[in-house]
Nucleic acid binder design. Structure first.
Length: 460
RNA sequence: UCUCCUGUAGCUCAGUCGGUAGAGCAGGUGGCUGUUAACCACCCUGUCGGGGGUUCGAAUCCCUCCGGGGGAGCCA
């Protein structure tokens, strides 16, 4: 039988019954007659206070019970004299694992940079424990949102042999001997000798494969790891991250935006509902007002504007910006912030971008200049979701690919989708870690994933 | 990749005009009638990121390499 979690012990009414509490000691405070331990097992932010009456338990052995050690404590749940509701009045205690004094986590504040170097231990801190619990809630909420709405979870491949959409640099997957790469007569690498008989990479997006399943099962979503080999060194990029990509058949851009908005609100609501204690911690120690921001996002309809409207708003205040905008230019971080924080004061969905700055698969508008793409911009963070109605007309798609110099044979199966029973369909992608950052207020994306992978960093 | 900032005790940091390193926490010892990252007293802790240079003298100034961080680009 397993013992109770500390989270459940904290919700236990005082009684005579002997219970067991197991966990790691966060702090020990010694008085003349009384010793206090705070015991945490990660099941909740708050730990259980263990009270050791040394007068009553006169031959109790507390050797080795220090910050970081693990213990097995027995006692009864009693009403606390202190600020917590209940505490454990100890009857016996046993040290499970000692913790020498070179334990890096002390009972004081550490910087996240320091803890990043101790990634194998940082989950034992308040901050990283709370992030892990919230991340879990969000993960579960993503599945339950789509499941409750009849979407089918599809596992798209992690290794791909087509450089689809060119959404960034890819990691190559190979079993070739790099010390002795087989070359053809033209001096180029002979990939027919490689494992797959051709060049293979880690996926940068499951979208194109996702579309094939949407055009069979109507509403699908993917949720899995994604890889980008970009040399980007920011608080918002990882080389390995998780992405959520729903794809819906018989759905236009309006339907797409509707789902994106409901989806975000659902996930945020779940966190506020299930992790109030963790969220209060973030609000207090990480980002003041983060709960209010989330409540505001949940309760206000997202602002909609076309790219063209967004540009004309921004052009009026061009002198505020480092980069001036004009029709055709990208919307930069500073502009995203202006639109969400100054103009709308809530999330903004920008639609109908110039075709030049968006991917080949987005549906062409009748004006021949803009495409049916949409970005959901969140205050403070910028782009959190990117999506579009897909070009489902075979001739228009082929034309676009030609314009961009994409080879039809590389996308033969993607084109056949448009040849055989094509339908309008739409989808979007959400960077999971960015969503976790948004909800927790944690500044650096490297702190919302257990073991971050980025340029020159793959420790653990 | 560009750009700015930064590296001092186990951790968080101070160190002025260049004069030979310091506080809190942690650790140790003792004290304390129930504490809340307890408190009080005492003790312990250094390749000042590495290398080179300027100087009578460098944590401090210069060069260089390495590590960390912010911002930008790219994006999710």
């Amino acid at each position: 039988m397993r013992n109770m979690r500390i989270k459940d012990l904290l919700n236990t009414a005082p009684s005579e019954k002997i219970v067991v509490a197991e966990g790691w000691v966060r702090t020990r405070r010694d008085g003349k007659n009384v010793t206090f331990l705070e015991l945490n097992d990660g099941s909740s932010l708050k730990g259980l206070q263990v009270v050791i009456d040394k007068e009553k338990l006169n031959d109790i052995n507390l050797d080795g019970i220090s910050t970081g050690s693990s213990v097995h404590a027995e006692g009864v749940i009693v009403e606390s004299h202190g600020e917590q509701k209940v505490e454990l009045s100890l009857t016996s205690i046993a040290l499970i694992g000692e913790c020498p004094d070179d334990y890096p986590l002390q009972k004081k504040r550490h910087t996240v940079e320091f803890l990043r170097e101790k990634a194998h231990l940082r989950a034992r801190t308040n901050l990283f424990g709370a992030v892990a619990r919230v991340r879990n809630t969000m993960s579960y909420a993503i599945h339950s949102f789509f499941q409750e709405n009849g979407f089918v979870y599809v596992n798209t491949p992690i290794i791909t042999a087509s450089d689809c959409e060119g959404a960034g640099e890819q990691f190559q997957v190979t079993t070739l001997d790099l010390e002795n790469v087989p070359k053809g007569e033209d001096g180029k690498v002979d990939y027919t000798k490689d494992f797959f008989g051709k060049m293979a990479n880690l996926t940068v997006s499951g979208q194109l494969e996702g579309e094939t399943y949407a055009l069979a099962l109507k509403d699908i979503y993917t949720f899995g790891p994604t890889f980008r080999a970009e040399n980007s060194n920011t608080t918002r990029h990882l080389a390995e991250f998780w992405m959520v990509e729903p794809e819906m058949a018989f759905t236009d851009l309006y339907g797409d935006m509707e789902v994106a908005e409901k989806f975000l609100k659902y996930v945020f609501s779940r966190v506020l509902e299930k992790n109030p204690e963790d969220m209060a911690f973030f609000d207090n120690f990480v980002l003041k007002g983060v709960i209010e921001t989330l409540e505001h996002v949940i309760n206000s309809p997202f602002e909609h504007m076309t790219y063209t409207d967004a540009i004309s708003i921004l052009e009026k205040v061009n002198d505020k910006f480092e980069y001036q905008v004009h029709w055709g230019s990208d919307i930069q971080s500073e502009h995203e912030r202006y639109l969400t924080e100054v103009v709308a004061k809530r999330p903004v969905i920008v639609t109908d971008y110039p075709k030049e700055i968006k991917a080949f698969y987005m549906k062409m508008n009748d004006d021949g200049k803009t495409v049916r793409g949409m970005d959901v911009l969140a205050p403070r963070l910028g782009e959190i979701i990117g999506g579009s109605e897909r070009e489902w007309r075979l001739d228009v798609l082929k034309e676009r690919m030609q314009e961009l110099g994409l080879k039809e044979e590389d996308y033969w199966w993607y084109l056949e989708l448009r040849k055989f029973g094509s339908v309008p369909h739409s989808g979007f992608g959400l960077g999971f870690e960015r969503a976790v950052q948004y909800v927790t207020g944690v500044q650096n994306i490297r702190d919302v994933i257990p073991y971050p992978r980025y340029v020159k960093s793959a420790e653990f």
